[in-house]
Computed example of a mutant assay.
Amino acid sequence: MDNKQAELPLVSVRSLGGTVAMTTAEPGRGASPSVSASDLVESIPALQGIARIDAASVAAVPSASLEFGQLLDLAAELERACVAGATGAVVTQGTDTMEETAFLLDLVWDRPEPLVVTGAMRTADSVGADGPANLLAAVTTAADPLAAGRGCLVVMNDEIHAARTVHKAHTASVAAFASPGTGPVGRVQEGRVLFQSTFRRTEPFEIPSGNGIARVALLRLAFAGDTVLLEAAAGSYDGIVIEGMGGGHVPTWWVEPLLAAAQQVPVVLGSRTGAGHVLSRTYGYPGSEQQLLGGGLIPAGDLDGLKARILLTLAISTSNDRDSARKAFEQRVASRTNTP
Rank of each mutant, 00 (worst) to 15 (best):
residue 39 D to L: 04
residue 75 A to W: 00
residue 138 A to I: 09
residue 79 E to I: 09
residue 44 I to G: 02
residue 144 D to H: 06
residue 94 G to F: 01
residue 105 L to E: 09
residue 87 T to I: 05
residue 123 T to R: 08
residue 85 G to R: 05
residue 69 G to V: 14
residue 86 A to P: 08
residue 80 R to N: 12
residue 35 V to D: 06
residue 137 A to M: 11
residue 109 W to Y: 01
residue 54 D to I: 13
residue 104 L to S: 07
residue 38 S to Q: 10
residue 109 W to C: 08
residue 120 A to W: 00
residue 50 I to T: 10
residue 34 S to D: 14
residue 101 T to P: 00
residue 133 A to V: 15
residue 144 D to A: 11
residue 93 Q to D: 09
residue 68 F to Y: 07
residue 88 G to P: 14
residue 29 R to L: 11
residue 97 T to Q: 04
residue 65 S to V: 13
residue 146 L to I: 14
residue 142 A to T: 07
residue 99 E to T: 09
residue 85 G to A: 13
residue 63 S to W: 02
residue 36 S to D: 05
residue 147 A to Q: 07
residue 104 L to F: 01
residue 34 S to P: 08
residue 102 A to C: 14
residue 149 G to M: 01
residue 96 D to H: 02
residue 100 E to M: 11
residue 96 D to Y: 00
residue 40 L to T: 04
residue 88 G to Y: 01
residue 43 S to E: 06
residue 68 F to W: 05
residue 41 V to D: 02
residue 145 P to N: 13
residue 25 A to Y: 02
residue 62 P to W: 06
residue 99 E to K: 02
residue 49 G to I: 12
residue 150 R to E: 08
residue 37 A to V: 07
residue 64 A to G: 15
residue 101 T to N: 05
residue 29 R to E: 14
residue 88 G to F: 00
residue 147 A to M: 08
residue 38 S to G: 12
residue 57 S to E: 08
residue 33 P to G: 00
residue 99 E to Q: 11
residue 67 E to K: 12
residue 116 V to W: 03
residue 48 Q to D: 15
residue 97 T to N: 03
residue 68 F to H: 10
residue 55 A to R: 01
residue 137 A to F: 00
residue 48 Q to A: 13
residue 61 V to I: 14
residue 35 V to M: 02
residue 32 S to T: 14
residue 57 S to Y: 02
residue 63 S to N: 06
residue 54 D to R: 11
residue 138 A to C: 09
residue 78 L to E: 12
residue 63 S to M: 06
residue 67 E to H: 13
residue 46 A to T: 10
residue 136 L to N: 04
residue 82 C to W: 00
residue 80 R to A: 12
residue 146 L to F: 00
residue 131 G to A: 10
residue 60 A to T: 13
residue 120 A to R: 07
residue 36 S to T: 14
residue 58 V to M: 10
residue 63 S to R: 03
residue 68 F to D: 14
residue 103 F to H: 07
residue 81 A to G: 09
residue 154 V to C: 10
residue 153 L to S: 08
residue 99 E to P: 08
residue 75 A to L: 04
residue 118 T to I: 10
residue 63 S to H: 00
residue 93 Q to T: 13
residue 35 V to C: 05
residue 139 V to C: 09
residue 68 F to G: 06
residue 27 P to A: 15
residue 103 F to D: 01
residue 81 A to Q: 12
residue 55 A to L: 08
residue 146 L to E: 15
residue 75 A to K: 04
residue 96 D to K: 03
residue 53 I to S: 06
residue 53 I to R: 00
residue 57 S to Q: 10
residue 61 V to W: 04
residue 137 A to Y: 02
residue 133 A to L: 13
residue 105 L to N: 05
residue 66 L to A: 00
residue 107 L to V: 04
residue 31 A to Q: 04
residue 46 A to M: 07
residue 105 L to W: 01
residue 129 A to G: 08
residue 147 A to H: 03
residue 58 V to P: 09
residue 51 A to S: 11
residue 85 G to I: 15
residue 52 R to W: 03
residue 134 N to D: 13
residue 46 A to P: 00
residue 101 T to S: 12
residue 58 V to H: 06
residue 108 V to M: 07
residue 74 L to F: 01
residue 151 G to V: 10
residue 43 S to W: 01
residue 40 L to M: 11
residue 115 L to I: 10
residue 37 A to M: 07
residue 137 A to H: 05
